[in-house]
């Protein structure tokens, strides 16, 4: 596995690797903003989603947590869906 976090051991190197990876994605996002207009929103949403998942999974350790905590966090997303749906509906996107 790319980033395996072992608890109660010094994982600082792994965390630094993850941070470098996140920085590269951020740099790529800004570069895309200046260089392309082709499907820019879609690409940026995907890239920020990747960053989001990495921070939640590895920095917040959710990947290694119990299923109940994963469900709790997922609940927030499920409850957010109506807001996004209303937004799309009002803007005639769907």
């Amino acid at each position: 596995m790319m980033f395996q976090i072992k608890h109660e051991k010094d994982n600082s190197k792994k965390y630094i690797q993850i941070a470098i990876f996140l920085s590269i994605i951020t740099l790529f996002e800004v570069a895309l903003f200046y260089t392309t207009n082709f499907n820019l929103p879609a690409i940026l949403i995907i890239l920020s989603f990747i960053k989001f998942v990495i921070v939640v999974g590895f920095f917040m350790n959710l990947k290694f947590e119990k299923k109940l905590l994963k469900l709790f966090f997922l609940l927030g997303f499920v409850l957010s869906i109506p807001f996004i749906f209303i937004l799309f509906l009002e803007r005639n996107i769907i």
Binding site: N37, L40, L47, V55, V56, F59
Partner: peptide
């Protein structure tokens, strides 16, 4: 730490949605 990372993930979304998406 959880609170701080949550602030970070929220900013990840704000930076993309507010600043970058045209």
């Amino acid at each position: 730490a959880l609170y701080w990372h949550c602030i970070d993930i929220v900013w990840i979304v704000i930076f993309t949605a507010v600043y970058l998406i045209p």
